[in-house]
Design a protein around this nucleic acid. Structure first.
Lengths: 205, 205, 205, 205
DNA sequence: AATGAATGAGTCTTCATTCAT
DNA sequence: GATGAATGAAGACTCATTCAT
């Protein structure tokens, strides 16, 4: 009499150990790229043999999946709270940028991976949620910018989609150089970025 | 037997064919990432068999090398001309940004590859010139910004290194979405980007 | 400009070489079982390295697939000809048995593999044709037997499905001991088997 | 340190639990083949973890061993009784066939495994008893048939070895489709098989 | 008796590269 | 200039097995 079949998803193992291992994996993926990272390298870094990782995870891809999806989950928790707060366009942008830098602070590796790999991963069914997230993301930011233009708060003489990309990239690329625990706190970096993006770097006449 | 070991095959073949093949390779590298791109894929795209590429090139890596180095050569031709022109800080930044968007227009694939792979490639001796270029690049941009701050043209209340990264990333990330022959000319995109970077997106009080 | 994309099915390579390799593979599969056979073993037997087989075939499974499907194709060519000939039940059975032994003679390895692996393979979508074939097979044999019983040519006091299995197994199991080029020709073996099946081994009173 | 290396764990545990587990294992081996069966699959089916099986058994192979050897032991108990009874050739064949179907009824899984794996296992020293059994088996059956031919009870115009294989395979292959508790009792199936084998399926003129 | 976590050997497969033709 | 066939090294993954708890 079969007892508990189909526990194949390898969701065994204590969540803490999984987290540890995922952090290690994320770090290596971020540093060398997903494809260039060997499972063995991750295992080395974790002090175990390559095959042992498969006790905790189904595959290298499922590690990536879990890293990205848990990052996006947290990100959207923060974003949704901001968007639900009913702030004005400028305050919304400020809050989104600040929240973004906080996420970069907490999930630097995941963000870096996201930057490098999201585009081609989004094509695979398994990573369809990346495309979904991108769409939702665009709607939130672009919508806020448009509202700001309509309200006369943001400049109307700029191509709004260009502006969107400008702000978006400006924020996320930071993951490529940001180091947690560095000179500036995420909030301070956000403040400076916002100042640049909103007011420009030129001295006002 | 003469000692002319390597490079017996390479560099035969008409330069035009090489260029064609490198363009194809660059496109595929840009789309899927260098590591994820198989030589066979490039060959498929070129209508030949994988092995046949080795009549034209020493290795997959040498294709990458040639793509990146010829891009950087052109880039520095443009940059050096700008830097030698003796312009003021603001005009220099304007000219560098414009030149950069022109390079993105001409070498979109190469720039995209550069963005994704430069960081980890720079560690390898063969790609040492990437690190050199990055250093020279930083010197040029950061120097100009510092000059601008000293001259009272750029704001002094911002962390200058943060500003540098902001401008640098802002420009190059554009390669990830830019499509040659699109709605805006490189010059027009440069103009809008400059307006954002210099004056900010907020309406002036 | 991509020329001839999507030739991924690895149906390159001269058909003769493929056949040679498939014969080798079939022999090894038959001797040790599909699962217990390593790709390396096949390659060894073929005088090449394991990886080299992948120039000719997509996977170990596709070798198995090709072995089984090409056997079944030939088998049904023969069977269909017999069934289309409009013979009486007894003559049909005789012809089917004879044809079967000829197939065993020509495809001994494939038949042995079929015997061992068909049952669990048939569950996989890729090998669905095995189930189809089994069904068609049953229809042909069982139908002929039923016709024979109706015509008063075969005994009516036996469970007809039991009889079907008896005849079916009787024939195919022979693949496990048959060696081509042995003492008896396939036709001679067929003659003796038919004599046993039709008349029994007991001396008639 | 005493020299009692192996078998420290094994053979602990209540014999009933062992039996249960062996039955489960046999079922899985029979369904998917020994090699294709993972220890984890057996454990799943038994509602425990893979490692836990090693409290009861030394190895996967030892499970197989125990399954096959205990089947053969029982089989020979039955056969030996028949052979010792001093029956005539026809009655001996009848008794052996009946006994065989009873074994199939009791040890269906073991018989199915035996059919699939015996040939290549027999080569390994550990399973030498399989070869021994086969030899003894052949001696018993072939001898009885020869005696029958000599006595004028069985036909003399057939190749006796072919006849032997015919009868042998005819009986054992039944394990591949037989389901205990089905429509016919083992004795009834034996009766029908004997009728076919002895008298043939054709209506007597 | 059984679990959780790991080992280590081995498997299939991929892929850059070579080279005779 | 290109093909066809192969090499060889490496990679992801599997699985029987071990063992402390």
């Amino acid at each position: 009499m079969p007892a508990a079949k189909k526990k194949t998803t390898t969701a065994n193992a204590s969540p803490e150990r999984r987290r540890e291992l995922l952090n290690i994996a994320a770090e290596v993926f971020a540093a060398h790229g997903y494809n260039a990272t060997t499972v063995r390298r991750i295992a080395d870094e974790a002090g175990m043999l390559a095959g042992s990782l498969y006790y905790h995870f189904d595959s290298k891809e499922s590690m990536l999946d879990e890293i990205l999806s848990s990052f996006l989950t947290e990100l959207w928790d923060g974003y949704d709270a901001v968007l639900a707060a009913g702030l004005g366009p400028r305050q919304t942008i400020e809050a989104l940028v600040t929240e973004s830098f906080r996420e970069i602070d907490r999930h630097r590796a995941a963000v870096a991976i996201y930057q490098k790999e999201a585009k081609h991963l989004a094509a695979q069914p398994r990573f369809g949620y990346l495309a979904d997230s991108q769409e939702k993301f665009e709607k939130a930011w672009l919508g806020t910018l448009e509202r700001g233009v309509a309200d006369g708060i943001f400049r109307a003489d700029l191509d709004i989609r260009l502006t969107y990309r400008f702000v978006r990239d400006t924020v996320w690329v930071a993951a490529s150089w940001y180091r947690p625990g560095g000179q500036h706190s995420p909030e301070e970096i956000a403040r400076q970025y916002l100042s640049m993006v909103l007011d420009g770097i030129a001295v006002r006449a």
